[in-house]
Write a protein that binds this DNA or RNA. Structure first.
Lengths: 337, 337
DNA sequence: CTGAAAGCGCTAACAT
DNA sequence: ATGTTAGCGCTTTCAG
């Protein structure tokens, strides 16, 4: 035996060992068509004996469909997306599908190349983050004919079906809550240099509600770094170092808000007496903080689950209002405002 | 035009539009062999015009290799593994590879079926968690000829190459630290019903060091639930409700330890005066706690990065002592012991 | 219920 | 520098 090429066994080999035709092996493997109990057992035994592993590339090529779902996420460095990915994976796994994924790092250009690349695997569906995509991306997807699920956002038209929440409404809701507590002078702290389009929409909703109520946004600080507690702490220190002091800070995320809270605790700033704080996402680590942070909880896992289920379901979804499934959000009052 | 089948363009179509042979298109697409500047541009233009997307299934089938790496992780519900996955993804992406992954939920049986399934995509490499795998799994991998990287653990023989840290040494190190602070009566709190084999190894190292020092382990509580702060809090309350009180608790993870810390703070238990606490992993959320938790920081991202790089590097790794790359760990002293 | 033939879209190996 | 031929391992289609 030359070991230059291990030569993985094919259906042909299984067929020879079982004394049947290769086609019969194919039928047994994919449980398609009628096969006698006897032959099936014989084939399965032969397959096990010689260590047969089916070749999905060949199957996919011939049948023009694969149990693959492409997943395009901005990053894995944010619990939000790993939660969503968990949901997607669970939904897919339950139906025999597998995720193949790639990360954009919030770049539209990277999304374009990534989508093209992922599409070359001929997946039967694709998950995209957000509602904003370049025309190139849209065309590639349309041309490929794969099903699309967009996640996180429902404020706008979906290509096919979107699963998420109204980011704008979340911002508005938080603003109303803060206003209801008597706060009037606000500051905003964000990260990622505004590349997170969902955060931008929340901010817009927040601003709008402030405007309607005649309250003012004193400052908006957005760092270029990714969201983190350290960054939140720094931003907060910055904001409070200026002459014009806010009585509430709205953060783009819980990490930032938690960092802000740390700054206040360390510097003896009374929360929420002197300064109110509000975050976004409702991440579990908030339970580890000495003060329950006011935030908006999002159904991250559920979003992934439903998006995944949508892509692997065989019947087309009933016509939805505007192709969006709003999974809502919950404001968690907390003790910081 | 019948829209029953969109009929995605093939290299044949591109060739026709560019007025060259199909093989020339193939050469342009894979940048293989010599192609004149002129022809290359013509082909690329034609491809763009008709919206050609290469078919990797066909390519993989014919060339008997794919830029796919199978990744088998226990869960995504633990930051540890999403950090590792980040590292893997970064390493792969930089080299044009893609991850296809599946989750075992800590079940060896699920690992077996998952590996078989993943192997059917003919990946060129596979990442496995831990050093313990069933004989079936090992055989399937050996037969397939893919490269294997095992992650997290280096206490034992690797199939090919392992990237991680000595879990046992981490347990011993923590024990020594606790003993050095004068603690003598210990309790252990774990989760996941002992299915996390790395946690079991840490506990063994911890126990051994206690034994050698003549200290005692009063109790070992392991819940069946996944690791979480809530669970840690519950376990801690349980441990402290008994007659025999420990002066230090060693937790299987930071989540559990943080929950324990919350219990102490809420119940006025002096930490570390009355009770010392130590966790494991060095997760970033610890910075949000009012007290810096003593823990052992692990190079999670780095583990993923190196494992990924190993799998996509073309030259075989130099012979390593026992096939393991120990990326070490760092004890973070903290204020809880 | 089982088999034979054809071919999915691409690349390896050989031409030229 | 470009073209021709063959065939990867499977499923589709059509026969029995």
């Amino acid at each position: 035996m030359s070991d230059g090429k291990p030569a993985r066994p094919t259906m042909e080999d299984v067929a020879r060992h079982a004394g049947v035709s290769q086609m019969t092996v194919s039928r047994v493997m994919s449980s398609k068509g009628y096969i006698s109990e006897k032959v099936r057992d014989k084939v399965l035994a032969a397959a096990r004996d010689i260590g047969y592993v089916q070749n999905r590339l060949a199957r996919g090529l011939r049948s023009e469909q694969t149990p693959l779902i492409a997943v395009v996420l901005p990053t894995l460095g944010n619990t939000v997306f790993t939660d969503v990915l968990s949901g997607i994976t669970d939904a897919l796994t339950q139906n025999g599908y597998r995720p193949v994924f790639g990360l954009t790092e919030y770049s539209e250009t990277r999304e374009e190349t990534l989508v093209r690349d992922l599409l070359s695997w001929r997946p039967s569906g694709i998950v995209l983050t957000g509602l904003e995509h370049s025309e190139t991306t849209r065309q590639a997807i349309r041309a490929s004919g794969v099903r699309v699920a967009e996640i996180m956002d429902v404020d706008g038209p979906a290509m096919e079906c979107a699963f998420g929440l109204s980011q704008k409404a979340a911002g508005q809701h938080t603003a109303r809550h803060l206003l209801g507590k008597g706060h009037r002078r606000f500051a905003y702290a964000g990260s990622q240099n505004g590349q997170d389009l969902r955060a931008v929409k929340r901010l817009e909703g927040f601003r709008q509600t402030l405007r309607d109520a005649g309250a003012v946004m004193i400052s908006e600080d957005v760092s270029t770094a990714p969201s983190s507690m350290v960054e939140g702490r720094r931003l907060t220190a910055d904001i409070l170092s200026r002459a014009d002091q806010p009585d509430a800070i709205y953060y783009a995320s819980d990490d930032l808000a938690a960092g802000g809270l740390m700054h206040c605790l360390s510097n003896g700033i009374d929360v929420p007496g002197t300064l109110a704080l509000a975050g976004f996402n409702g991440l579990p680590f908030l339970n580890a903080l000495p003060l329950q942070l006011t935030t908006v909880e999002t159904p991250r896992y559920e979003i992934g689950l439903q998006a995944g289920r949508f892509l692997v379901s065989d019947q087309a979804q009933e016509a939805l209002p505007d192709g969006c499934v709003d999974l809502g959000f919950t404001l968690i009052p907390g003790q910081t405002c």
